[in-house]
Structures are given as structure tokens and as C-alpha cells.
Design a protein around this nucleic acid. Structure first.
Ligand SMILES: [Mn+2]
Ligand SMILES: [Mn+2]
Ligand SMILES: [Mn+2]
Ligand SMILES: [Mn+2]
Lengths: 217, 217
DNA sequence: ATAAAAGTTTAGATTAGTCTAAAAAATAGT
DNA sequence: ACTATTTTTTAGACTAATCTAAACTTTTAT
């Protein structure tokens, strides 16, 4: 049984490890968790003693198999709750993250099973992120930033940055999951991109914005 | 901002004070919270310093106006979540309490507003308990144990004990909120009661059981 | 009225999670 | 190869929430 705080650390570590594929450093964790490195050292020892990660002094941590499974369960809950908030309660996609950060810690397998069923076993959350199934499996669809797309008409399938600030900007310019989008021109000077949204609105977006709007290749 | 633990203490104190009407003793709180009296003394000092209760040494605590409002908000959340679990996710009424104990601590006024709306602004939870509105107001319908009812046909409107053990027994004998019920005879020997359920099933229930099945007078 | 019992509080310790400051190890630069 | 910088760890302290054991009030019973 992990505590609330341990769950948050483990999830952050899992994300930083790119799905458990690489070692994660103390300072990275401290930055992600907005705590001090000294606190991280304490916590990684605790998580290591619970076999969620392996820890080697001065080197970093790796997520173990049980750690991955635990992290995926938390991510599953987070994304199911986000889906519930948008699909059933009528939240906007920029309002759900903080509430889901709380809801993801509720302990009840029955609740998650019933919620999943109630939502019709969704495979992606409101930001286009995949929802792991109860065994931690999910489809990794190749998603690329629009700037790297071919220039043909495609469809927005996810956003990389889910911060309210970015999502609210997307609301303003009419970009959402499922909208048609086409890259008309890439400006060499500042790497900004001219796009056509929904086949009718033309506008320029910054390099940063373009890197956070993803389409399926 | 109260912590998770402070919220639980405050709610217990509010319930023990019968809605904020009487003083509550240290040992009562310790028993309700399954902690030791020494821990309660510490906690009531904290809650008093946050103006949720007033505390007088060796005498007990009283819930303040802001304390009542806070407690009612937690109770509102608890009962809305229980209603959600039963009405929308298909939980049985004996499965919801422990999950609601967790969900009641989620902090998001928007969430509760939207949940209330999604549920159609319910006024009672799955156990017949009233749900306070956003201002903490609720209807106190006079509910009495069936044994004290007139002997005419009435309708079960609430249960006093919401423990899984009791609710599962009620499931077994076919008693639920809204079922028709009639007291046929009160046995003098052990105060057990013969009842007619749904106009067709006759059976005996114990004094204890009869005291926990409530009808509207 | 005094002693015994019951109830409550204080004192001191423990654990989780955090911090600052200092020490130690790893890395980079000359 | 040696020094300087960066990164990480340790040591020691703090708060919230808990406990046990001892001390103190209040209540009850003779
Ligand atoms: Mn999120
Ligand atoms: Mn998301
Ligand atoms: Mn309940
Ligand atoms: Mn209830």
C-alpha cells in the first residue's frame, strides 16, 4: 500500500523515465515534484524499500515491474476520471487535470471497474492520451507534432502539453481533438507555422504551439 | 483549509453533537475515531485554533457556526457521492459508504456543483439520509422506527444504521427504501416485531432491526 | 468528607514528509 | 592530474498525527 505522496512520486518518476525505459536523476524528480533534492533522496529510499524502484546512490533510480504496474494503475485512474469529468459532467478539457490529480488516489477497484464500464471503456482521455486497461496495456499510436506532418489534411489526435494555459489558447483558436488541420507553410525565420483549421480558418501559430499539437501519422 | 484528518474529526464531532446542538466528550470522539483520548486532546486543540469548535478542558467541545458549515459541506459531498455510486454506477447501497469516505475529501466546488446537477439535485441519499444543499440547508422529515408506527401500512423512508451487515440483511429480507411495510404485531417477550413487507411477505424481525428501519410519520 | 474510580490532559516518543546547511561524490575544465 | 563546479547525500531540525505512561481533574461511592 503506497501513501498518497508515494503514489505521486512514483507517477512522476514513471513519466520522467519515459515509461520505465531509462534511469531518472534526483534533481529531475525534485524539479517535477517541486521539492528539494534532499527530500527526494529520502523518498526514493522509501520507494526502493517497497520494491517500486531500484535506487543506486549518485546514479539514479529505475522503475521496477511492480512499480510500472502501480504507476500505470494511477495513470489509468487519472485518465478515466478526466474522461468522466468531460463526458459526463460537462467540464472543459482545461479544467479537469487538478481534480483528477485528487481523484486518481481513491482506492477502490470496484469503483474503477464500474466507472470504466459507465464510460464505455474509453481508450483515450480528453487530451488524446491513451488510457491503460486494467492490465496496464494500451495502444501507442504514433503521434507526431503537426510541424512534422506531410502538409496534407489530417486530424488533431492529442496535445502534448495539457496545461490550462495552452488548452485555453487552443479553445480560442478553435483547435480540439478531432478537428481537421493542415500545415500550409513553415516559416523559416522563427519556425512558426501557418495552419488551416477545420478547412476554413487560416492562422499562424508559434513553433512552441506547433510542437504541442499532435496528429496521427 | 482543513487536512483530511481534521475533516474526519470534525465530521465525527458534528455527528456526535447531534447537529451541533450539544457538547461532545473526549472519550466519545476517541471511540468514534478509533483513536486514543490523548490523540483527541491534541486534535481538538488544533480544530479549536482553526475556529471549527470551541474547547474547554475537562468539559468537552462544541461545534461553531463555521464548523457546522464545514461539516455539512463534507456530509453533502459524502451523500452526493453515495447517490452517484448507486444511481449512476450501479453500486448496491451496502457497498458505497467506504468509497464515499474517500471521495468526500475531494476539494473542488465546481465538481460538486456539476455532480449535484448531473444527479438532478437529489434530496436524499441511498440510505434515506437528507443531502444538505450548497448552503447547508436540508429538510428534516420526522422519521420514526417502524416499531413506533401506528400499525397502518407505510413506506420505508430511511435506515438508521448504514453498516454493510445490516443493509445486507435487509437485502435478504427484501427491505429497501420505498418498500411498503406494516407492523402486524409487537411481541412483548423480546420486543421483536412481526411485519408484512410489500403486502405479501410476513416475517419476524428483532427489536434491534426494527429500531433501524425508519418510516415517515 | 474522603477515598476510589473514571475521564482527561500532559510529557515524551515515533513515523512520514519536508526543509536547510554541510559533507561527499561525480563531472568538467584546464 | 588537479582543481572547480555540479550533483547528490547526510545530518539535524520541524510539523502533523499518532501512541504509551504518568499526572491531574472530576465524578461517584462509601
Ligand atoms: Mn491530467
Ligand atoms: Mn489527460
Ligand atoms: Mn455513508
Ligand atoms: Mn448514506
Amino acid at each position: 500500500m503506497l501513501s498518497f505522496t508515494e503514489e505521486n512520486y512514483l507517477k512522476a518518476i514513471y513519466h520522467l523515465s519515459a515509461g520505465g525505459t531509462k534511469a531518472v536523476l534526483t534533481n529531475e524528480i525534485a524539479e517535477a515534484m517541486e521539492t528539494k533534492p534532499a527530500s527526494v533522496t529520502d523518498m526514493v529510499k522509501r520507494l526502493a524499500s517497497k520494491n517500486m524502484i531500484t535506487y543506486e546512490r549518485y546514479y539514479g533510480v529505475n522503475v521496477t515491474k511492480p512499480g510500472k504496474s502501480e504507476a500505470l494503475s494511477i495513470i489509468r485512474k487519472h485518465r478515466l476520471w478526466e474522461t468522466f469529468l468531460v463526458e459526463k459532467l460537462g467540464f472543459n478539457w482545461d479544467e479537469v487535470h487538478d481534480v483528477a490529480e485528487q481523484l486518481e488516489h481513491i482506492q477502490s477497484p470496484l469503483l474503477i471497474q464500474k466507472l470504466d464500464e459507465f464510460l464505455g471503456f474509453p481508450s483515450v482521455d480528453p487530451h488524446g492520451d491513451p488510457i491503460p486497461d486494467k492490465h496496464g496495456k494500451f495502444h501507442i499510436t504514433r503521434q507526431i507534432p503537426i510541424a512534422d506532418s506531410s502538409g496534407k489534411k489530417t486530424v488533431v489526435s492529442a496535445v502534448k502539453d495539457s496545461s490550462p494555459a495552452f488548452l485555453q489558447y487552443l479553445n480560442k483558436i478553435g483547435v480540439y481533438i478531432g478537428v481537421s488541420i493542415q500545415v500550409l507553410e513553415k516559416i523559416e525565420f522563427d519556425r512558426s507555422v501557418e495552419i488551416m483549421i477545420d478547412g476554413k480558418r487560416k492562422l499562424y501559430i508559434s513553433k512552441e504551439a506547433s510542437e504541442n499539437i499532435l496528429v496521427t501519422e
